[in-house]
């Protein structure tokens, strides 16, 4: 799975969790860019990402997720061999 595919799958998860099919995320998207992205949805989103990719993030990693690109980095580290 390459980085583009990760971003595409992330986009699908984000749309599903935030119940908004028109959202398009890029590597630079942050929580401030999307109305629905509050603390409640953030925790649900992280949990959904972990289930989808069958991975578990560390708390220190989660604290460093400043944008979608950082989430991609962490997923890529675990899924790109």
């Amino acid at each position: 799975m390459d980085r583009n595919e990760i971003l595409q799958e992330l986009n699908t998860i984000v749309r599903k969790v935030f119940e908004n099919p028109s959202i398009i995320v890029t590597e630079t998207t942050t929580a401030n860019d999307i109305d629905e992205w509050d603390s409640l949805n953030h925790a649900t989103l992280i949990s959904a990402i972990e289930k989808h990719f069958n991975i578990k993030f560390k708390l220190t990693e989660l604290m460093g997720f400043k944008n979608v690109g950082k989430i991609c980095d962490s997923i890529a580290q675990r899924t790109i061999k």
Binding site: S39, L40, H42, A43, T44, I46, S47, E50, L59, L62, M63
Partner: peptide, 8 residues
């Protein structure tokens, strides 16, 4: 924030 993530 750390707690919500820990209890996600």
């Amino acid at each position: 924030n750390p707690l919500t993530l820990q209890l996600r």
